[in-house]
Nucleic acid binder design. Sequence first.
DNA 1: CTGTTAGCGCTTTCAG
DNA 2: CTGAAAGCGCTAACAG
Lengths: 332, 332
Amino acid sequence: MEGVVTIKDVAQKAGVVKSTVSNVLTGRKFVSETLKKKVLDACRELNFHPNFYAAGLSGGKSDIIALVLESNDDVGRTFYSELVMSCLKQASANGYSLLIYYSSDNDKLINILRQGNAPIDGAVIMSPCVNDERLEQIESDRIPCVVVGRPENDYLSYVDIDNKKLVRDVCEALNKNKDKEIYLINSHFDLTISHDRQKSFAEYCAACGTDAQTHSFVSKNSDENDGYLLSRDIVKKSAVIITANASLAKGVYRAAEEKGLKVGEDVAVFALGRHQEHGTFAPKLSYAYQDYSVLGKQAIDLLIEEIDNGHSGRNVLIDSQPTFTQSVEKFL
Amino acid sequence: MEGVVTIKDVAQKAGVVKSTVSNVLTGRKFVSETLKKKVLDACRELNFHPNFYAAGLSGGKSDIIALVLESNDDVGRTFYSELVMSCLKQASANGYSLLIYYSSDNDKLINILRQGNAPIDGAVIMSPCVNDERLEQIESDRIPCVVVGRPENDYLSYVDIDNKKLVRDVCEALNKNKDKEIYLINSHFDLTISHDRQKSFAEYCAACGTDAQTHSFVSKNSDENDGYLLSRDIVKKSAVIITANASLAKGVYRAAEEKGLKVGEDVAVFALGRHQEHGTFAPKLSYAYQDYSVLGKQAIDLLIEEIDNGHSGRNVLIDSQPTFTQSVEKFL
DNA sequence: CTGTTAGCGCTTTCAG
DNA sequence: CTGAAAGCGCTAACAG
C-alpha cells in the first residue's frame, strides 16, 4: 500500500474508472449517489489526496492568491505588514492561501503573472511593480490581477485611496470662505497618485478663481529639505499649505518658523499621506491616515470577484478620513 | 506566435530536441556550449517561461516555502505579523517565496505537508498545528518541516525560545541569596512550553532544597483571574512569583494589593512570556521579551538547510533576554 | 450517466 | 554527447 495514492488506486478500490473519481472530486459532472459514496469511502480508506501539480497542469484551480511586493523601496515595515496581514486574513476567509513574492527583480515579478508560471489563481500587486510596458506584452495570457494604487495602465483593476476626493475635502475644509491662499506641495510626477492630487487641486483652484499653476509645486525627493525649499517663498499669514507627505510638512514647519509664523495660527499645514509617526510635530500635524488594512481587504475582494467572474473593469476607491488637529486649528 | 510557448517550440527554434532544452535549463546534464547558446537564445526570442505545474509534476523544485498558521487562537496580530514578516524577509533573501496557510482546519493544514499536495519545498509550522498524531502517519512522504516552538513529536526539527535557560536565569537573578520563597504560576500543560518551564523550575528548586511541588501551579485559562486565585495564598513578603504570562501577573498584582503588599518591594513579579503591552502595570512589570522576528528568521534558515541537505535533527534554541524593572526592583 | 482515450509541459530513462 | 519515447497524476473530450 506504499507509494503515492492516485485516483487510479481509488478507482480500483471503488470499482469505477479514473474519470468517475475525478468527476466526483471536482463535482463538475453529475455522478450517482451510490457511486459517489463508494468513491468517497475509497478516498478515505486509502487516505487519498490529489496531487497539486497534476491538478494544476490539467487546468484545476490552485486556491492560492499571490501578493506581489517590490523589495526595493524601504517604505517601512509597518506599511507592508499591515497590507500583508489584511490580505492574508481576507484571502483565508475566502478559502485562499496567500503566496507572497517579495523581490527586487521586476522581471521575475512580472513573469509570475503569466498563466501557468506560478501556482496562483490571481495576484494583488503593489503599485510600483506595474510601471512597466512588459506587462502589456503578456496581456493575453495573464492571470487576474488587482493593483493597490492606481496604475498607469488602464487595463488592470485597482484599489486606491480616493485621492481626488481627499484633496477636495481638505481644500474645502481649510478654505471655507475662499479667503486664503492655498498651495499644494506635491511629490514627484512618476507617481500616479501625484497626478490625481494635482488634478483635483487644479479643479478646486479653478472653482475658486485661483491660478493652480502658481499654487502647486512638484517635489523631487519628497523630503524635508524639499518641503523647506519649496515653501520658503510661499509661507505667509493666511496661507494653507497642503503637502504630499509628512516629511515635506516638516520642511514647511521649518520655513514657517524661520519667518516667525505660527503653524496652525498664521499658516495651516496638512499632509495628505501619512501612515505612522515620522518624528514628532509641534504643533501636531494634521494628516490623512492611509489605511492599508482596508486597501488589502478590498483588493482581495476585487481579485476574487475577477477570478470568479472575469475582468469587470471595476475599481475601488476608498475614502480617506482627514484628521484636523493643531496644525490647522485656526482655519477650521 | 500565439498560445503558450513550450520547450517544444524552443527546441524547434533552436534546432534541437526537447530534452536538450530541458538539459540546458535544468543544468543536470552537460550540453555543448554551442547548443547551450542556441537554446538560451531561442528562449529569449520566444520569451519562454517554463510551466510551473509541469515542472513540479516531474519533480522540480517550487522555490516556495509554506508558513502554516492556525487561525483558531486569537493570539494578537502583532505576534503573527512579526513572525510573518521575518519569515518573508528571510525566505526572499534566499530566493524563496512565502506561501501562508492560515486556517482553522487542522486536517487541511496537515495534508499540505505531504509530498506533492502543495506547491512547496518545505514548511515552517506554528507549534499548535502539530499536536496531532496524524502527522506521524505521513512521516514517510512528508516534505521538510520546521516547527516554531518545541513540538511534542520528536521527529520534527524546531526553533524555540530557550525556556529552560530563561527560567533558570530568572530564578537565579531574583533569588541571589536563596533566601526568598520562589513560585511558578505556569500555563496549562497542553503546551510543551509549560513542561520545559516546569522542568527547569523543578531543577532550580532541587538545587535550592525547595519543594517544587508546593511552589508551582498550573493555571487553566492563563488569565488574570487564574493569576489572582492561584497567587492569593502565596503572596507574602519576600516572595518571588514568576508567571507564564502578563495576564497571570496582572492577577498577582491584584492579590498583592489586596494584602497590602507592594510589588517590587515586598514581592517580586516576573512574567516569562510577554510580547507587547497587555494593559498597563504599575509598577512596571518585568518580563522576558519574545522576539518572533528571530524565531522566524532562524526557522527559515533551518528549513532551507533541511531542504538542501535533508533532515539533520538539529534544533535551534534562542536566548530570551529578561528585562528587570520596577516589579522586581528590590530583589536584584 | 459511465468508461475510454488523449493530452497538459516537463523530466528522465535509454538507445544511438 | 544527442534524440526518441515513456510517463508524472490529473482533467476533459468523446463515445458507449
